[in-house]
Measured scan of single mutants.
Amino acid sequence: MGSVRTNRYSIVSSEEDGMKLATMAVANGFGNGKSKVHTRQQCRSRFVKKDGHCNVQFINVGEKGQRYLADIFTTCVDIRWRWMLVIFCLAFVLSWLFFGCVFWLIALLHGDLDTDYKDDDDKSKVSKACVSEVNSFTAAFLFSIETQTTIGYGFRCVTDECPIAVFMVVFQSIVGCIIDAFIIGAVMAKMAKPKKRNETLVFSHNAVIAMRDGKLCLMWRVGNLRKSHLVEAHVRAQLLKSRITSEGEYIPLDQIDINVGFDSGIDRIFLVSPITIVHEIDEDSPLYDLSKQDIDNADFEIVVILEGMVEATAMTTQCRSSYLANEILWGHRYEPVLFEEKHYYKVDYSRFHKTYEVPNTPLCSARDLAEKKYILSNANSFCYENEVALTSKEEEEDSENGVPESTSTDSPPGIDLHNQASVPLEPRPLRRESEIGSRR
């Protein structure tokens, strides 16, 4: 089982795998120059863009038009607004034209077009017409509009002379109601789609790998820009990579689940303020055997998904993003964004995407760390350097704002901070800030 798991979770494809794949392509008759073999020097295209759209195009789909027309309502909801407006206008105009032609044909076959009612006051002739005051196609078209929109100006009306005319008036009224219901329903469904809710759900630009509770963890940050909550919010993550099976089958995008606390339930989050999602790199993680150097040379993509129900409509929305291997910062942490004021908490989104480097973060893999092949620094050293990194950030910001350097908390000259780390230190809580992250 261990060997199978290692093969499945191998992220960085070796040169031997690339040569094996190329040999397979030639042997199977696919070596026509169009096949692409992804190596370390040639990274694959992003499968999920940063804005959440999937970078996929469908080609050679059989009976595409028929399949889309069979699900016309979903098609109308998914198309762009400009095409929705075109369909909206065409549906009414074509129905008016169709029934206008029908009423014109009825008048033509009944002989109503030969009668001039402007110079004739004989009401008996008017009563013999199928539709009064309809003696041309324009008049028939206007009567069709008046019937379907129930305008009723009063000059044109159907008589009991022709039952077919009466039937067409009733039929057009029913068709008009159906068109109204369909168009209004599609427009309302399109307006109520929770897709735009994703514009106020954000992911951090970069993911980070750092120590948390004595273990290497992959972390990324999510935030909600609205005050309205995302009900039943939960997160998922998958690692996408290519691999070759033991039988020699090439899988271009193998999807591997990344555990973010599904078993323990901590994948469900209360997204009021930005939260750091934590994936513990343990023996079940696809990143277990990867060191910093392996991450730098790897070719994979981590897709992160945030799902929840919109509070206003109770409709489920899904926000997506992805991180390539070069977008994962090893040995970094996110800057705090949640600050405790006197009577409330304040979230500073200008710090949302910012990170700071944490010294002495192990550069080895989580496996080597678990097997004690890498000796961690003293816990006080880690905490102290973590505090120094934050303090230096604040000093830089104070210097930019014009604060005198004498007010900063610099260490005395001639003292090495790293050498001082081995000395037991008193706890130094942050002056006014605390970061709330997901705790395992």
Rank of each mutant, 00 (worst) to 15 (best):
S434L: 11
H418Q: 13
V134M: 11
Q41E: 13
A22H: 12
I302M: 04
A421E: 14
V187I: 07
V134C: 05
Q293P: 12
I87V: 10
F30M: 15
K36V: 14
C130S: 02
H234I: 09
I145T: 05
D267N: 08
P194L: 10
I415E: 15
Q66Y: 10
K34D: 15
D289G: 04
Y349R: 14
R8W: 03
D78F: 08
I244S: 15
L390A: 14
G62R: 04
L369E: 01
G33T: 13
T245I: 04
K196C: 12
S144Q: 00
I72S: 15
C76Q: 08
L329D: 02
Q57M: 05
F137D: 02
S242Y: 09
N224L: 11
T313A: 08
F352P: 00
F300I: 06
V126Q: 07
T147R: 04
W220T: 08
L239K: 01
N380D: 10
E433R: 07
Q318I: 10
I184S: 04
I209C: 05
M188K: 02
L94G: 04
E387C: 03
D213N: 14
V77W: 13
E249Q: 07
G308Q: 05
D119Y: 04
C157G: 06
R80E: 05
P404G: 07
E397A: 08
I178E: 02
L324G: 04
S173Q: 04
I178V: 08
F339W: 11
Y356N: 09
I59D: 15
E396D: 12
D119W: 09
L105N: 05
V278C: 11
T159G: 01
G154D: 03
T276M: 09
F73W: 10
D180P: 08
S381P: 09
I375W: 06
M211V: 12
E394F: 04
R243H: 08
A192L: 15
E371S: 04
K49Y: 04
R226V: 14
Y349A: 11
F300W: 11
K373M: 08
H353G: 06
V208C: 12
F98H: 00
M309E: 13
K393Q: 15
P412E: 14
T149S: 12
S3Q: 07
D410H: 06
L390G: 15
T245D: 11
E400W: 08
K393D: 14
R82E: 10
F141E: 01
S10I: 04
D17V: 08
E15S: 06
N419F: 08
E397W: 06
K215L: 11
S321W: 11
A421I: 13
M19W: 03
E340T: 10
E335D: 08
V158H: 00
N380F: 06
E301V: 00
Q255M: 11
K241P: 03
S95C: 15
S136T: 07
L338S: 04
R156P: 03
E283L: 06
A139M: 04
S377N: 09
I277N: 00
D119L: 00
I295F: 11
D410C: 10
Y117D: 00
L338A: 13
C54D: 14
T23Q: 10
L329Y: 05
P163L: 08
G223L: 06
K34P: 14
E63M: 07
V93G: 02
P362L: 02
A181E: 11
N224H: 09
Y117F: 04
L369Y: 07
L113T: 06
L109H: 15
D17R: 05
D160A: 03
R243F: 08
G261I: 08
H229P: 12
R156A: 03
Y153G: 15
Q148I: 02
F352A: 01
S264L: 11
E433H: 06
A233N: 05
K50A: 07
R367W: 01
E307N: 11
E435H: 06
M168H: 03
N326E: 14
I302P: 01
D254P: 08
A22I: 02
V170T: 07
M84Y: 15
D120I: 01
L216H: 07
G33P: 13
P404V: 09
L324I: 08
T150H: 11
K372W: 04
F203L: 04
E327P: 01
C217G: 02
F92N: 06
S399G: 09
K241E: 06
L306W: 10
A189T: 05
D284E: 14
T409D: 14
A210E: 11
K49R: 08
F88T: 10
E340D: 08
N378L: 04
I183R: 02
I184V: 12
P404Q: 12
F30Q: 15
K354D: 14
Y374W: 08
S173T: 15
W104S: 03
V358I: 08
I251A: 15
S144L: 01
V304I: 14
L390M: 13
I258N: 00
I266W: 14
I179R: 03
P359C: 08
K227M: 08
P362A: 01
M211W: 04
V77S: 11
C76R: 12
F382K: 02
A22F: 05
R431G: 10
P194G: 12
E63I: 12
G65Q: 09
F141V: 06
F103H: 06
G248H: 06
F58N: 15
F203C: 06
A189N: 13
V222R: 00
H205S: 14
D119S: 01
G62C: 10
S136Y: 00
